[in-house]
Design a protein around this nucleic acid. Structure first.
Length: 200
DNA sequence: CTACCTAATCTTGTGAAGCT
DNA sequence: AGCTTCACAAGATTAGGTAG
């Protein structure tokens, strides 16, 4: 299962950079933001945004969350091409998958996004990996984290919680949040993100 | 084998110049 | 005005060498 997932990932990584580049450019244009405006809103330098939009840089997840927050979308939405089609079934081979260059963690957009704007993402966090979302402009949403394999440590408001296989935690996305795998095996889990007020 | 140091490399950032 | 490209800097990471 894990091996199959990773083989799919490596085929999609370069395409994902292209998709992210296109999505950031489209969303920025839709908002009418200049590079300078988006840079000041997101805290990411305009040169870096320009590189991401031209797919010259493979941005880290933290960087993309900052951009997504400033653009009013979730991280998963940056991996989706154009407006979501009304898919009923999404095959694993068709799922956008991205490897974070900083931590090596992978995320796969499992489900086609529904009318509510809900995102369903499968994440593989390598042993020792840590992803911190601090001081970000977060999209108002409720997030469910459901662990399948390994042990995931979730830290918010200075409180760390270990989640094992089958455990699920719900939280608001309006506080700094840390995902960490302190174990020796990869942690695989699902994130279901439900934005406030339905579709954005 | 482990710890430490150093150099090289990579990522991200800023500022400036030039192009459209 | 807005964007791209370049030079350069700072910080983090990685690789290689050395000593205990």
């Amino acid at each position: 299962m894990i091996r199959e997932t990773y083989s799919l990932i490596m085929e999609n990584v370069s395409d994902l950079d292209q998709i992210v580049a296109q999505r950031v450019r489209e969303l920025r244009a839709a908002k009418g933001f200049t590079l300078d405006q988006l840079a000041s809103l997101s805290g990411v330098s305009r040169a870096m945004i320009s590189r991401i939009e031209r797919a010259e840089a493979s941005a880290t997840a933290v960087l993309l969350v900052k951009l997504g927050g400033a653009l009013g979308v979730t991280l998963a939405a940056l991996f989706e091409q154009d407006e979501p089609k009304r898919e009923v079934v999404r095959r694993a081979a068709d799922s956008p998958v991205r490897v974070d260059p900083e931590t090596g963690y992978t995320r796969r957009n499992v489900a086609p996004r529904g009318a509510s704007g809900t995102d369903v993402v499968e994440v593989m966090l390598p042993p020792g990996a840590r992803v911190a979302y601090d001081n970000l402009v977060i999209v108002p949403a409720e997030q469910f984290v459901w662990v399948f394999e390994g042990v995931l440590t979730l830290e918010t408001d200075g409180l760390a919680t270990d989640l094992g296989p089958g455990d699920c935690r719900v939280m608001r996305l309006d506080h700094p949040l840390v995902f960490e795998n302190r174990g020796k095996a990869p942690a695989r889990y699902a994130v279901v993100l439900v934005p406030d007020g339905g579709r954005r």
